[in-house]
């Protein structure tokens, strides 16, 4: 009886997550990130005369620097909480994870704090990316040999 009551109260008070609403917000914000990236690429290509390959690198560098700065000012966390995957899946999420880990462990010192923990959250991306790309390029190599 007591357990049921407790469960009811918990159910009433946990915030309901509307999957469709969340997905819609992620779709819109993620799409806007894509449009911003395309605008930046066009900007670097046409106005500064940089070739396409370097323009994409410049775009990534700009977005990473901006999201690191915004994380430091404190309002990027609120944006991530609101947009969720709309900002986690673009490259801004990678920069946000690196920057927030570095800020959080700053007080533990330079080497044992920042150095050891900076890639705590984003290290998974690098490690899984490298391992899977190694495997897939080996597969591509074997397919090419046949």
């Amino acid at each position: 009886m007591e357990k049921n009551k407790y469960k009811n109260i918990v159910d009433q008070n946990t915030p309901k997550e509307n999957t469709f609403y969340d997905c819609l917000i992620a779709f819109i914000t993620g799409g806007l990130m894509g449009v911003i990236a395309e605008i930046l690429i066009e900007f670097y290509q046409n106005l500064l005369d940089i070739p396409f390959k370097s323009a994409t690198v410049c775009m990534l560098v700009t977005l990473i620097t901006l999201s690191c700065l915004f994380t430091c000012f404190g309002f990027f966390d609120k944006w991530v909480n609101f947009c969720k995957c709309g900002l986690i899946i673009p490259i801004t999420g990678f920069a946000h994870a690196t920057q927030s880990a570095a800020l959080e462990y700053r007080k533990e010192g330079l080497v044992t704090g920042i150095g050891a923990n900076m890639l705590k959250l984003s290290g998974a991306v690098i490690i899984f990316g490298v391992v899977s790309s190694w495997l897939f390029s080996i597969i591509r190599m074997v397919v090419g040999l046949i």
């Binding site: 997905c23 992620a26 993620g30 806007l32 990130m33 894509g34 449009v35 990236a37 673009p90």
Partner: peptide, 13 residues
């Protein structure tokens, strides 16, 4: 680019 980036983010969400 809006459609593709939004679609990837929506799947992730």
């Amino acid at each position: 680019s809006f459609i593709f980036a939004g679609f990837v983010c929506a799947i992730a969400q």
